[in-house]
Simulated scan of single mutants.
Amino acid sequence: MTDLFSILLLAAAAFGAGVLNAIAGGGSFLTFPALVFTGVPPIVANATSALAVSPGYLGSTLGFRPELRALPSRRLGREAAISGLGGLLGAGLLLVTPASVFAGIVPWLLLFATALFAAGPVIARRARAIGGTADGAAHGREAGLLAVAIYGGYFNGGLGILLMALYTVAGESRIHTVNALKNLNSLVLSWLSVVAFIVAGAIAWREGMVMMVAATLGGYAGARWSRRLPAAWVRAGVIATGLVMSALFFRLAMG
């Protein structure tokens, strides 16, 4: 990365990713192609993309401090620990498994998560009508969180949509609280997965440092913009983002 165009492209992609991750998720679809376009090998681009968007999660998490303070600290700590474990497991899988094996199912996962998020309120209402214990709901949410965190450590694309789908189906009806939990857990799992990538020497540092700064600014801006938007608009944005990402990933898989 030596020319001004590459620097500006990577910075713009990272800023946009930070905004998108704060509002709906899916920012890695901007950072990963930008890195590949500027000449970074795909596996290194995947790891560097995770590094690039990780500070954006910090900015967006700070932007949702009021929502996080309203939740029990014990729950936040437990879910953060689960997310961190999943992130490390997923990063380990990426380092030992060819990325092409997983690429084939990514479009299906994104499409499923988008449909799940769209149907989340209806599913949650029916689940509450059927009944169930709080402990049972918590265990189901935590098991789902571990699975999503492993996915996020392996391939970050669509992580935010999967987390938002998980919390919506688990019964959380407040869209900004869903966003806050998504950003906090994304922060923890992405930072720990990045540690694994650094140890393995899979990071393009010059590109990554430029993108980290831009993603942090984008994440904070996105959190502020997200809270000002009506909840219905945010939900529609998440669904639209999921559908577009699914179509693009299907096209990539077939191409």
Rank of each mutant, 00 (worst) to 15 (best):
G104H: 13
V106R: 04
L94C: 10
V36H: 03
G56S: 04
E142H: 14
E79C: 11
F102Q: 08
P55N: 07
V44Q: 14
S193W: 02
E142T: 06
A115H: 08
P42T: 03
G237N: 03
R206N: 07
N185S: 00
V122G: 00
V210P: 00
Y220S: 09
G222D: 06
A115P: 01
W205Q: 11
A204W: 01
A129K: 12
E142M: 15
A17K: 00
L187N: 12
G87D: 08
P66S: 07
G152K: 05
A22T: 08
S186T: 11
G63Q: 06
A253V: 13
E172I: 11
A232Y: 00
L166F: 05
T114F: 01
G120Q: 04
W205L: 13
D3K: 06
R78Q: 12
T133N: 11
G140K: 15
R228C: 10
P230L: 04
S60R: 00
F5E: 14
S60T: 10
Y57E: 12
R235L: 01
A99K: 14
F32W: 09
A232V: 07
G120T: 01
A165L: 01
T114R: 14
G27D: 05
R128T: 08
F15C: 03
A103K: 15
V194L: 00
L110S: 04
R75C: 06
A240V: 11
S60E: 02
W191L: 14
M164G: 10
A134D: 15
L71A: 10
L9E: 06
P55C: 11
V213G: 11
E172Y: 08
A12Q: 11
Y154D: 10
M254Y: 12
V195W: 15
W191Y: 13
T38D: 01
D3L: 02
T216S: 07
A247Y: 07
G16S: 02
L243Q: 05
L4P: 04
R174N: 12
P98M: 06
P72A: 13
G26M: 07
A12H: 13
A231Y: 01
Y167L: 11
S60H: 09
G27E: 02
I150M: 08
T168Y: 08
A215R: 01
P72R: 13
A134H: 09
G218Q: 00
M211H: 06
N183S: 10
